[in-house]
Simulated assay, not measured.
Amino acid sequence: MSDGRVLIVGATGHVGSQVAKLLLQKGRPVRVMVRREGTSIHGATGDLQYVLGDLSDPASLRRAVTDVDIIVSSANSIIPSGKTLSVKRINDSGYENLIAAAEEAGVQQFVQSSVPKHPMEQTVPELAGKRLIEQRLQSSSIASTIIRNPAFMDVWLVMSGARQLIGPDPHATTRRPYNFMRVWQSITGDFVVKHGILLAPGGSQQGSVFISTRDVAQMMAGTVGHQNALNRIIEAGGPEWITWAEVAELLAKKIDRNVRTLPIPAWFAGIGQSIVQPIMPFAANVRI
Rank of each mutant, 00 (worst) to 15 (best):
S208P: 03
V183S: 13
W156L: 10
S56G: 06
T173Y: 14
S141A: 15
V158G: 04
Q164G: 08
I90C: 10
I146V: 13
V158T: 11
A252C: 01
Q205S: 01
R89N: 15
T261P: 13
L22F: 08
M1P: 00
K83P: 09
D69I: 00
S73P: 09
R260W: 00
Q112C: 12
R136L: 09
L230R: 09
V68E: 00
R131P: 01
T261Q: 11
P150M: 04
V276Y: 09
D57N: 13
S160I: 08
I211L: 11
I79N: 12
S73L: 07
E246T: 00
I197N: 02
I233S: 10
K21L: 07
G196A: 09
L7P: 07
R176A: 14
I279K: 08
F152C: 10
Q277M: 11
V6N: 05
I275P: 03
G225N: 01
A20Y: 08
M153N: 06
S139C: 07
D57I: 02
V72E: 07
E104C: 10
S86E: 11
S274M: 13
T66H: 11
A248Y: 02
I233A: 01
V192E: 04
Q206N: 15
R175S: 13
I99T: 10
L61D: 05
P119K: 14
F210W: 12
M280C: 02
I264T: 04
S77W: 11
F268W: 13
I255F: 08
D256H: 10
L24R: 03
M219A: 10
A151S: 14
K26E: 15
V68M: 00
G27E: 05
I41A: 01
Q122W: 05
V19I: 09
T261W: 12
G46F: 04
P80Y: 04
W184S: 13
G129Y: 10
E134D: 11
I8P: 04
L250T: 09
E235Y: 13
A101Y: 03
A44V: 07
S140Y: 12
D3Q: 12
W184Y: 14
V9P: 10
I78Y: 12
M33P: 09
Q273N: 12
K83D: 14
V209P: 00
F180Q: 14
S56P: 00
A11E: 06
G43K: 05
Y50M: 01
R136N: 09
A75K: 05
K254Y: 13
S274A: 14
V15T: 12
I41W: 01
M33R: 13
T84M: 12
F210C: 00
A101E: 02
P58F: 06
L137M: 04
V111E: 05
T12S: 05
A252L: 00
V124Q: 12
L199Y: 02
M219E: 06
V6T: 10
A101N: 06
D92I: 08
R35S: 12
V65F: 03
G10T: 09
T188M: 14
V30I: 03
R136W: 02
H42D: 15
S114P: 03
H195C: 01
R28Y: 02
V224G: 06
E37A: 11
W241V: 13
P150K: 04
